[in-house]
Simulated assay, not measured.
Amino acid sequence: MSNNNREISLVTLDSRHLKGALKLSQEFSWPYRLEDWQFAAQVGEGVVLERDGEVLGTALWWSYGERYATAGMIIVTAKAQGGGQGSRLFNALLEATKGRNLLLNSTEEGLALYRRRGFEPWGMVHQHQAVLAAPPETEPSDDIRPATAEDLAAIQVLDERAIGMPRQQLVAALFDTGKGKVLVRDDEIAGYAICRRFGRGYVVGPVAAGSVEDAKRLICAHLVKLGGQFVRLDVYADDGLSDWLAELGLPMTGQAVAMARGTRPATIAPLHMYAVANQSFS
């Protein structure tokens, strides 16, 4: 091992690393704020490559029950690339999540690397974002209302059915930091959507519902309040929301390949996750 490799330590992510992680993500023009890093670390775990206190690489994961985890925010600075540091970082992530089915969203550049590690593509995530010039015109509806604290338990149950993983802690944290809308049908919650501050403005997601039309209505319930704001949604390509979002003034600006190492979680139809909270922790 070279002297350079010996100087780089692999350590557990903690709060002292977050400013360095922010600087690292800015190197790659990621839009994260310090608050976004703090939230990701609060609800997940991670490892860091560091040298003399400088953060050179990050890899985070979020565990959902005993069977599943998602991975993301995997970054290695150019000055630490080569010499096996990226593999060292990713191996630590794989070791920490061993025994769980692991999901991630990959850029085209990372596809070959993840395939070599046993990940298989299963879908696409489309990133839509822009300053929302004009909010959508929608008619008031009695079945969509602001979520309350009393709704949280039902939202958590619905979320697990829609995504197939128990994400109670994540949903509670999203609920605390954002504003929720719920769709109520026959006195039961049939869908939900959360909007929160993220990156350059606001992100709408997760959005879980039993149909595309219900998902659209929940999304619009947030967008009507976001005219003139920078808005982002990350939606699954197969659900047909991309053209609709573009028509609303939120064009597709990027895409990621959804991949799984192991078995994908099974959802309970007709519930479905239409927009993710974040491409990293989904």
Rank of each mutant, 00 (worst) to 15 (best):
residue 18 L to H: 01
residue 152 L to C: 10
residue 235 V to F: 06
residue 3 N to L: 15
residue 100 R to K: 15
residue 275 A to Q: 11
residue 175 F to N: 04
residue 192 Y to K: 12
residue 280 S to G: 07
residue 86 G to R: 15
residue 60 L to I: 02
residue 40 A to Y: 11
residue 60 L to T: 01
residue 230 F to R: 04
residue 79 K to R: 13
residue 74 I to E: 03
residue 34 L to A: 10
residue 13 L to S: 10
residue 154 A to T: 05
residue 202 Y to D: 09
residue 104 L to C: 08
residue 208 A to C: 15
residue 60 L to E: 02
residue 127 Q to D: 02
residue 178 G to F: 02
residue 98 K to I: 04
residue 174 L to A: 08
residue 275 A to Y: 10
residue 170 L to P: 01
residue 68 Y to A: 09
residue 195 C to H: 13
residue 34 L to Q: 08
residue 3 N to S: 14
residue 141 S to E: 08
residue 131 V to R: 02
residue 1 M to F: 13
residue 223 L to T: 07
residue 32 Y to C: 08
residue 76 V to F: 12
residue 146 P to S: 06
residue 255 Q to K: 15
residue 74 I to G: 09
residue 201 G to H: 14
residue 243 D to S: 14
residue 111 L to T: 09
residue 86 G to A: 15
residue 136 P to E: 02
residue 197 R to K: 14
residue 127 Q to E: 04
residue 84 G to M: 14
residue 184 V to F: 04
residue 20 G to K: 05
residue 58 T to V: 11
residue 238 D to M: 01
residue 157 V to Y: 15
residue 250 L to K: 08
residue 260 A to K: 04
residue 230 F to A: 05
residue 121 P to C: 01
residue 261 R to S: 13
residue 17 H to W: 04
residue 220 C to Y: 05
residue 124 M to N: 00
residue 40 A to C: 11
residue 116 R to N: 07
residue 101 N to L: 09
residue 5 N to W: 15
residue 89 L to Y: 14
residue 133 A to L: 03
residue 180 G to Q: 02
residue 69 A to W: 08
residue 281 F to P: 00
residue 88 R to G: 11
residue 209 A to P: 00
residue 104 L to D: 04
residue 264 R to D: 07
residue 238 D to K: 01
residue 56 L to N: 00
residue 175 F to V: 03
residue 234 D to E: 07
residue 37 W to G: 00
residue 211 S to T: 09
residue 165 M to S: 06
residue 253 T to C: 13
residue 146 P to D: 06
residue 209 A to N: 00
residue 256 A to F: 15
residue 64 Y to K: 10
residue 155 I to R: 04
residue 270 P to V: 04
residue 165 M to W: 08
residue 231 V to N: 06
residue 233 L to D: 01
residue 156 Q to G: 09
residue 155 I to P: 02
residue 100 R to A: 12
residue 190 A to Q: 12
residue 85 Q to M: 12
residue 194 I to D: 12
residue 109 E to Y: 14
residue 108 E to P: 13
residue 109 E to H: 12
residue 257 V to S: 08
residue 54 E to R: 03
residue 103 L to E: 04
residue 107 T to Q: 06
residue 153 A to I: 06
residue 282 S to T: 00
residue 128 H to Y: 00
residue 269 A to G: 00
residue 208 A to M: 15
residue 170 L to V: 07
residue 164 G to W: 08
residue 16 R to C: 09
residue 107 T to V: 06
residue 227 G to A: 05
residue 129 Q to T: 00
residue 60 L to V: 01
residue 40 A to M: 11
residue 96 A to K: 15
residue 265 P to F: 10
residue 108 E to Q: 10
residue 209 A to I: 02
residue 262 G to D: 05
residue 31 P to V: 04
residue 262 G to L: 03
